[in-house]
Write a protein that binds this DNA or RNA. Structure first.
Lengths: 216, 216
DNA sequence: GTCTATACTACGATAGAC
DNA sequence: GTCTATCGTAGTATAGAC
């Protein structure tokens, strides 16, 4: 949607093949998962031959993990600054939800890919172990950020003494699942999940529920 | 886990091949999804040749949809009676959560398969359209059951006037995702998700959050 | 950087013996 | 009801010309 210039390259260059592949693969992996997508389908959608993909990515697993890495980067970009801010727990949690929801709503594939990353075990080959471990570490860091906010709030008495782990699980489900629910969610809600109004509505719902639900 | 006698058959019969296949396929499909599982893997795990599966199921899609149907039946069995009961909205919602959580915690594959059914679009062939439509209808019925409880509660003033659709989405995420989160969730919670203590803990967390979060 | 050609494996599904 | 054998296709990945 927002093509950028290559990092230090000359002006006038279009989106690189690499980025095109990543964009297409992201949409497809989000819809049907790692095993559900063939490289031929990716290549066709990009407008390349199947073999050309291997010039840009070592393997299908490599492509998938780079897609996942981009998704995580998008979320970190939004949530990171909130975590580093000096707000109180209640306000910080609100801003954290805003940031997470914005990140998940920014592109339709984000939530589905993250959800798949959270509950699927795709049995990746051992040579990808390092990349898999790094993705897990980044997710852990995000989770622990939310955990810190909740713990701080409980210590300060602004939140009820709830289970931090259970609350995180609820929060993940309420955000990631919602924006991953696609057609099903849209039929239930009755309007596009990613429209500006709907995104605002989701934030309001979540913040109100937590305000009443966690408030001391 | 609970082998039953064949419907009208003689005593002493062990679990039928058909049920063995369904059990094995359920576990595998839950872990890796429709495309991630090969029929050879299913057959090996059951102890049959690959071709023998086609004696019991017309196709892989047929097998998958029958697995999904069993999962839905398990949930309906628990949630249905609650919906039909004559309790007030607040108590009915509590019992509904108990029933749903019990159903999801009964077998480890249930939540993952349901979650996949909710957000995945597996592009099934047109000849399976009827079976797919029936599964969607059953899910819709379950959803509408919860919707009715929420609407009734709001009308009677025992719940805040929240968005019913958003609350349902939150509830699905908080229950189905939690029990589908597998290794990730267990690491976060720190103990097996399906143990008796943990299941009770999850129910308590959810009911407390909703009690405070929805209470008028 | 993209292509054609190809290797090798696995897939879902069918036919037919037993 | 299970088996072996086989079909046709598609999967990931590599080699090498351009």
């Amino acid at each position: 949607m927002t093509p950028r210039r290559p990092a230090g390259g000359a002006a006038g260059a279009e989106t690189s093949s690499r980025e095109k592949i990543l964009d297409v693969a992201e949409a497809l992996f989000a819809q049907r998962g790692f095993s559900g997508v063939g490289l031929r389908e990716v290549a066709d959608a990009v407008g390349l031959g199947k073999s050309s993909l291997f010039h840009h990515f070592r393997s299908k697993v490599d492509l998938y993990l780079e897609v996942l890495g981009r998704v995580l980067a998008r979320i970190e970009e939004r949530v990171g600054p909130v975590r580093a801010s000096a707000l109180g727990p209640a306000e910080k949690l609100d801003r954290c939800i805003d940031a997470l929801v914005d990140a998940l709503a920014e592109q339709p594939a984000t939530a589905r890919l993250l959800l798949r990353g959270l509950f699927e075990d795709d049995a990746f080959p051992p040579e990808a172990a390092a990349q898999v471990a790094e993705a897990e570490r980044r997710i852990q860091t995000l989770i622990q950020g939310i955990g810190s906010i909740l713990r701080e709030g409980i210590e300060q008495g602004v939140f009820r003494p709830v289970s931090v782990a259970h609350t995180i699980q609820t929060l993940i489900g309420a955000t990631v699942y919602h924006f991953a629910s696609g057609e099903f969610g849209e039929e239930l809600i009755g309007s596009p999940l990613l429209s500006g109004d709907e995104v605002r509505g989701r934030k309001d719902h979540l913040k109100a529920l937590l305000h009443h639900g966690l408030g001391a």
